[in-house]
């Protein structure tokens, strides 16, 4: 249920746009959902039970996977 000042048709206007395909991988000991871009794998979502990992700058959404640190 959306409670917003933006009209629903503006929020969902371009709902035909396709999201980039995503895949799961292990990175720095955590499960991350990534999408493939020209510059490498971009983190889209972090799935972890360790609250500390959500404060790790390298695991933030939008960061690129650094291969040297891949677990």
């Amino acid at each position: 249920m959306i409670h917003s000042i933006i009209p629903m048709d503006v929020i969902f206007g371009d709902s035909n746009a396709t999201l980039a395909p995503r895949q799961m991988m292990q990175y720095k000991g955590q499960s991350v959902e990534v999408s493939q871009t020209e510059n490498g794998y971009k983190i889209e979502r972090l799935m972890s039970t360790d609250p500390k990992s959500y404060l790790d700058p390298a695991l933030q959404v939008g960061c690129f996977v650094n291969y040297s640190q891949k677990a």
Binding site: S4, F12, G13, L46, P51, S53
Partner: peptide, 30 residues
């Protein structure tokens, strides 16, 4: 937009609760 159970189309700038909620746990614990 605060993004909840539905992934919003890409033209919206969103704050995703599944990232904020565990981040708050991390902040409280750290």
């Amino acid at each position: 937009q605060i993004e909840g159970h539905i992934v919003l189309p890409p033209q919206n700038k969103t704050t995703k609760y599944e990232h904020i909620v565990p981040q708050l746990v991390g902040i409280e614990e750290n």
